[in-house]
Write a protein that binds this DNA or RNA. Sequence first.
DNA 1: ATGAAAGCGCTAACAT
DNA 2: ATGTTAGCGCTTTCAT
Lengths: 338, 338
Amino acid sequence: MKKMTLKEIAQVFNVSISTVSKAINDSHEISYGLKTKIQQYAKENKYRPNKLALNLRQKKTKTIGVVVPNILNYFFTQVFSGIEKVANEKGYNLLSCISDESYEKEVKTLEFLGGGTVDGIIVSMAEETQFKSKMDHFQNLLDEHIPLVMFDRVSDDVLCDKVVVDDYEAGYRTAKYFLNLGCTTLAVVSAIDQSSVGRLRVDGYKKALSEADIPFDDRLILRLGKKDDLELLMSLLLNYKQIDGIMALDEITAVEVLRIVKARGYKVQEDISVIGFTNGKLSRYVTPSLTAVSQHGTYLGETAANTLIERMEGRTGKDFSTRIIKTSLVVRDSTKKL
Amino acid sequence: MKKMTLKEIAQVFNVSISTVSKAINDSHEISYGLKTKIQQYAKENKYRPNKLALNLRQKKTKTIGVVVPNILNYFFTQVFSGIEKVANEKGYNLLSCISDESYEKEVKTLEFLGGGTVDGIIVSMAEETQFKSKMDHFQNLLDEHIPLVMFDRVSDDVLCDKVVVDDYEAGYRTAKYFLNLGCTTLAVVSAIDQSSVGRLRVDGYKKALSEADIPFDDRLILRLGKKDDLELLMSLLLNYKQIDGIMALDEITAVEVLRIVKARGYKVQEDISVIGFTNGKLSRYVTPSLTAVSQHGTYLGETAANTLIERMEGRTGKDFSTRIIKTSLVVRDSTKKL
DNA sequence: ATGAAAGCGCTAACAT
DNA sequence: ATGTTAGCGCTTTCAT
């Protein structure tokens, strides 16, 4: 039972290929009798039009390319899941690629996707790309008029639709929340200082401090490199000043911070409040459960997919949009009660 | 700068399309001078062969379809990541689909993938599919000679390559481990009793009990339905007998069990030992950290991808293989020390 | 109501 | 060394 083609069906009925094509597509041009016979035959023999031929003919694939830096990160998984949901509803498929935070892989991937394989692309930049600030590969896509939506890790140098988390605002409001709680010596632990996202959060934090007339102290910002020892840096930090609030910019780091703080004998909540970014499963189940900034990854993904699909289907003007997803704070047990 | 074709290049140089094709593919048939000129022109103008045309011509897509039930489940994410890694290394792309545990969606997805979009398919069955035991959609693929690899949630009724976790053995060894610890009243909490995977683990558990001459008591098996209240069922269970070991068949359930047991005043480790299946991030960071059965998801994914690629590239015999991934126990703090 | 022919972009066997 | 032709499977004018 090999794949069957229009040609074969045509031979069976001794008609032309185009007749069969029309019959199968239920064209009114074909007589009722012949049409039903052909349709029935097609169904019985499980005829399926060859997608490759259709793609070539119609110059579209009904496929969206998705490039994420790392799928093992729950936030990106959530976004992916949101994209999938919308894409599926609207009849699109997902060609998924992982850049592994590598610039080179990202370039190759986008080059590939630009080759006609997909109708549009959704991407969040690799860390290395953000670091290098090289955006040519995105520009190439734009030059070829391939619809592109960037999310979360975006660049001002690329003119396309974007969906971002309001990281500045999130940093600001998180710091504010600490201040309202009565915390005054606020540290930040960032494992993502390379990225715009991380820096925006710190900027928001600075603004909150300045509004409260608290001088900014850079030594309270712990910037964690790939090979750094968090344990060690944390103990330096904790010895430096009597810290009563820590904001950790990703979930794993937040959980680690929690562990270290506990291990060093501090009482989380009473002595030190901790808030993490990214509200994933860990935050909920860790002890004490972690107050966290939710970035609504799934919703973000849905928004990105909708934006792209609208663009692909020409239902948007020529101006690019930047949609901003509001964060929200999920209060749990790692912060003082109000 | 719209996409450029061979035809356009041919016009520029006043040669035939096939000459250009050959030149670009660096054929020896073309004179050095012309060849380099064309190649240079192509490069400058960023010529990229149209993938759709190539696919049609060569009747392959260098794409693998992956269908997983749920990407928000860390195990599947790991598998996916493993597949991606190998696929990428071998020059394949991934068309990813999520069945959402739905039979219907799985059927539609496979129908779509069978339409020529991919060269081969890797799939783990939806829960509903396992429950209904309807395998026609897989059989259809096989009939059309589309290479298929099933993993983790597989069916004996589908004759194809498979990669599975040794769940029977895992259940057996986990129960054994409890017994060695001195635990004798072992409960199982299963939220996946619909699936082969869940039942195999329970079967392994039974074997270990019988070897130790402990009679099997079905009331110690807590089968959790979608809408059931774990909290309530757990308290019934804990009141039923003095349980000293609990084996939870998925990570979230394990973590919940841990929480409930703690909340009811039992000392995890001393009073009750808990082992979870699936060694994800949660297990590591929860308090107390959870002893867990690792299924080596990434490795499983790599194996599945390798198996499929070998099959697609015809480097395997006609017999189908079933590769078995051994589990291993990651001992942490939720179990008694030996 | 049916069919012939062109074409999507590319490759490759077969001329010249 | 270069060109011609056919064809991958399908849709879609434009005849008939």
